[in-house]
Nucleic acid binder design. Structure first.
Lengths: 334, 334
DNA sequence: GTAAAATACGCAATCGTTTGACCTCCAAAA
DNA sequence: TTTTGGAGGTCAAACGATTGCGTATTTTAC
């Protein structure tokens, strides 16, 4: 492990000053052609590579963006990361990763690490348990821009990229109505989630557009565990006007619900039709895949978030970015 | 964005030297208690945070490990990353991410970026298309240790962590033999993959242990596309001694194979039983999940790779780490 | 032939922190 | 009274690259 060659070393060997070497390597106009050549050749010979850590330090810029997500192994987030990394790489930025495991403490710790690393900016999807936002405020004070992503805090002045579930839900319900279903159930997620509220809003909107009255008993909520979903299903199926179609909060819920229905001897796609929200790339391999699902484009969201951040970095005076992608119903041709 | 406070600033305000401040903050014994207190208090007040970029530069160490994987959004790799990030975080290391998309060019480019970033070490799963290993050699020359992971190059002196498929395959075949199957097919992957060769080896081994003769026509290979798998299935099912059980290269192949068999009116789990290798956390939601699958523990592999790398960083003279995890058959209770 | 302008380069400071090598008291030992 | 010596600091260099400014040498213009 011989010490890597530095500009100084090149300067010494060529009997010129370090500044000349630096400028020569940058093709600065004030350096003569001869010298440029000599420098560049020697640099190539020595396999010279600029020490980025020195440059980062000197330029006060790291060309690194931090990404903090709840769980790297979840399909939704890993697709998002992929989008982030691709877009960042395309602009010569690197990506520093952290996962909060949905814990506030860990999230704060990662924010701190990222701050110390002097990342140029951050993309964050906040942890479920995070109630206190002071760590985000501290980032703002430090002048580090943050683009929130998917799970966004309830604050006014922030940049964010998210996916609006309303449109997709409207399409989903309309689709079912078009197929003749008149009693449509919904298994929603926890009420406090924005995502849940949007789903319900979409549901109501679609009903209203079709001049059907909104029956609140048809919208039940699950805590997203298998048991929660089973309970939700039992509630729905025991209604006197019981649904012939169900919109499930996500693919996991849908799969659990399907299994429950099967156990109860319902014929899927005859007695009971399912529509879901896409989390899993392969839900169509399942026994009874939903007939359609609302796609959230995590990869694209990741890209957009990165784009937004890069724009902010390029122009720090840029106004608050509030990017909303529309979810979209994808019909699964069998 | 007021310039963040520095050691110099603290020194100036307290009318002491920067070195004293530095030592005070590090609890150096040669600084008096009074001064230490004053420094630490002011530091807290000003919200002082050491500039890591300066420290990285000065210490020639970044406490960052680079991770290069083919595809961040694949379940196997995203689970691995999760393990890597967890283990790294536990040791105050950060993780710089890159995905090669299985392209040699991109891989080289990322290696270069990582080198410039002066990551302390790397964890790499090489791209499918990579034939030329010079970029890895250059890392070695630069004194940056690399732990290869899962997809390891065919080189002698390297560190690696991988999962041996032999043991799991032996178990899988034995399991099927135990269930009374005597004609067991295998849909393998491309021959050049180590993973394929290990599967075949396991298959043969299990047969030999049961004193059954190895019939090579029962082992066919797929290029892992749907069409490839269909062809493989057709080959297997048209044999005169046709198999009652099939070991599939992975869950995707298994799912395709199952769909093919269903189309051909085979009764899954009666006429034909499947065992697979786990890529997908949720394959048991599918219509006909494999009765068992060989688990590769990507999360654990990620952890192990990180552990290995950290040990190497702590002791650069450490010998070549060659960690092999054993795959293991997991039986799916229906 | 001389002034002005262009060309090609060197000097030195700077970024923030760390660290080995001094320095300066003051008290206790000789 | 002169040493020692420890406690508590200070100084300055170093890490590697960048950059504003100054300057020597050459070229051009008149």
């Amino acid at each position: 492990m011989p010490a890597p060659p530095t500009i100084k070393e090149i300067a010494r060997r060529l009997n010129i000053s370090a500044s000349t070497v630096s400028r020569a390597l940058h093709d600065h106009p004030s350096i003569g052609l001869r010298t440029k050549m000599r420098v560049q050749q020697l640099a190539a010979e020595l396999n010279y590579e600029p020490n980025q850590t020195a440059i980062f330090f000197q330029q006060r810029k790291t060309f690194t963006i931090g990404v903090i997500l709840p769980e790297l192994s979840e399909a939704f987030f890993s697709a998002a990361i992929s989008g982030i990394e691709d877009m960042a790489g395309r602009h010569q930025y690197s990506v520093l990763m952290g996962q909060s495991h949905d814990e506030e403490e860990r999230e704060k710790q990662i924010v701190n690490t990222m701050k110390k690393h002097r990342v140029d900016g951050l993309i964050i999807s906040i942890a479920k348990n995070t109630k206190d936002y002071t760590h985000f405020v501290s980032l703002q004070q430090a002048g580090i821009p943050v683009v929130f992503f998917d799970r966004i805090p309830n604050l006014a002045d922030i940049h964010y990229v998210a996916c609006d579930m309303v449109a997709g839900t409207v399409q989903a319900v309309k689709y079912l109505l078009g197929k003749g279903h008149r009693v449509i159930g919904m298994i929603n997620g926890p009420d406090k989630l924005l995502a849940s509220r949007q789903r319900e809003e979409g549901y109501i909107k679609a009903m209203q557009k079709h001049r059907l009255k909104y029956d609140p008993t048809l919208v039940v909520s699950s805590d997203l565990t298998r048991e929660g979903t089973d309970k939700a299903m039992s509630k729905l199926l025991s209604l006197k006007r019981h649904p012939t179609a169900i919109v499930a909060f996500n693919d996991y819920v849908a799969m659990d619900a399907v299994q429950y229905a099967v156990k109860k001897k319902y014929k899927i796609n005859e007695d009971l039709t399912f529509v879901s929200y896409a989390n899993l790339p392969i839900s169509h391999y399942t026994a009874f895949p939903p007939v359609a699902s609302v796609e959230q484009f995590p990869y694209v969201q990741g890209q957009r978030a990165t784009e937004a951040l890069l724009e902010i970095l390029a122009d720090p005076t840029s106004p608050w970015k509030k990017v909303t992608l529309e979810s979209k119903l994808v019909i699964h041709t069998p």
